[in-house]
C-alpha cells in the first residue's frame, strides 16, 4: 500500500533522511505538541495577566518582573498573550483539519469506491480546487463574509479538503480490489457498510498522518492571515495578530513581542510536520514487512 503523505511544500523534505528520522526528535516534538495543547486548555488560569487589558504605563517594555516577556505597543503582556493566544491559534487549524478531513474522506471514499465516470469527474474537480492557493481563498472569503476566524477557516477547509480527498480516493481505489473487501461483499454485506465500516478504518492511520501535516500548514496560513489583519481581530490574542501588533515595538528596538509568537508558530508547525511524517514512515515500514 502506498502511504505517501501529500505534503504541500517539502518543508522538511531534505532533512527527512537525516537527523529528523531519529526517534528523539519525534519524541521531543510530541512532548512539545502536548505541551502546547495543555497550555491552550489551561491558558486563562496560567496567564499571569489578562492579555486583552493594556498596561498603558508599560507599553513596549522589555522583559521584567511585571511582564515576563515584555509588552507590546498597547501595553498587552506578551507572555499572557502567548498563552491565551495558543487557543485561537490552535483552534483555527483544528477546525480546518476536522472539516477538511471529514469532507475529504467522504468525497475520496465515494469517488474511489464508485470508480468510473463519477470518479473521473470528481478527480477533475479536485484538480481545479488544487489550483487555488489556500491563502487566496481565505482572503476571498474575508472579502465576502468579513474579518474574523469563521470565514477563513471555512475557506481554508475547502482548500485543504482536496489533499485528503485525493489521498483517500487513491487508497480506496487500491484497497477495494483487495480480496478481503471482495470477501465482505460476497458474504452479503451492503456495499456502503463495507466501504465505510470495513475499508475506511484500514486507511485510518494514513489519513491521520496526512491530517497531522495539514494541521501545521493550516496554522501557518491562519497566522499569516491574522498577521495581515484579516483573521483574528485584536484584542483577542492570536499569534499571527500578535506579530502584526508588534510592528511598532520592533521599530522601537523591542522585538520580543514579535519574536515570541513567531517562534511559537514555527515550533508548532515543525513539530506537526515531524510527527506527521513519522506516522507516515512508520506505516510504510509496517507495510513493508
Amino acid at each position: 500500500m502506498s502511504t505517501t503523505v501529500l505534503v504541500r511544500r517539502p518543508l522538511l523534505g531534505r532533512l527527512r533522511g537525516g537527523f529528523l528520522a531519529q526517534g528523539w526528535l519525534f519524541r521531543v516534538c510530541l512532548v512539545l505538541l502536548v505541551g502546547f495543547v495543555v497550555v491552550a486548555v489551561f491558558a486563562p488560569w496560567l496567564a499571569p495577566q489578562d492579555p486583552t487589558m493594556g498596561d498603558f504605563a508599560n507599553t513596549m517594555a522589555g522583559p521584567g518582573a511585571d511582564h515576563l516577556l515584555g509588552t507590546d505597543q498597547g501595553g498587552h503582556d506578551t507572555f499572557s498573550a502567548l498563552l491565551v493566544g495558543a487557543r485561537t491559534s490552535l483552534l483555527g487549524p483544528l477546525g480546518v483539519v476536522v472539516f477538511s478531513t471529514v469532507v475529504g474522506i467522504a468525497v475520496g471514499l465515494f469517488s474511489g469506491w464508485r470508480g468510473g465516470w463519477v470518479d473521473a469527474v470528481i478527480g477533475r474537480v479536485l484538480d481545479i480546487l488544487f489550483a487555488f492557493p489556500s491563502l487566496l481563498l481565505a482572503i476571498l472569503a474575508v472579502a465576502l463574509f468579513g474579518k474574523g476566524l469563521g470565514a477563513p477557516v471555512l475557506a481554508m477547509a475547502v482548500a485543504y479538503m482536496p489533499y485528503t480527498a485525493r489521498l483517500v480516493r487513491g487508497l480506496t481505489a487500491q484497497e477495494k480490489n483487495r480480496p478481503y473487501v471482495s470477501a465482505y461483499l460476497v458474504q452479503g454485506h451492503a456495499p456502503v457498510y463495507v466501504a465505510v465500516r470495513r475499508l475506511l478504518p484500514n486507511l485510518g492511520p494514513t489519513v491521520l498522518a496526512q491530517s497531522t501535516v495539514n494541521f501545521g500548514y493550516a496554522l501557518l496560513d491562519l497566522a499569516a492571515l491574522s498577521f495581515l489583519g484579516l483573521g483574528v481581530q485584536p484584542p483577542t490574542p492570536d499569534w499571527g495578530a500578535m506579530i502584526n501588533q508588534a510592528e511598532a515595538a520592533v521599530l522601537q528596538g523591542q522585538p520580543l513581542s514579535a519574536v515570541v509568537p513567531a517562534v511559537a508558530v514555527v515550533l508548532v508547525v515543525v513539530a506537526f510536520n515531524v510527527v506527521g511524517e513519522q506516522f507516515g514512515d512508520q506505516l510504510a515500514r509496517r507495510d513493508a514487512k
Binding site: 480480496p179 471482495s182 458474504q187 470495513r198
Partner: peptide
C-alpha cells in the same frame, strides 16, 4: 462463497 489465492490480503488485517 469463494476463497481467494492470496492468504496475506484476503483477511481483514484489523
Amino acid at each position: 462463497q469463494i476463497v481467494f489465492q492470496d492468504p496475506y490480503l484476503s483477511l481483514d488485517a484489523r
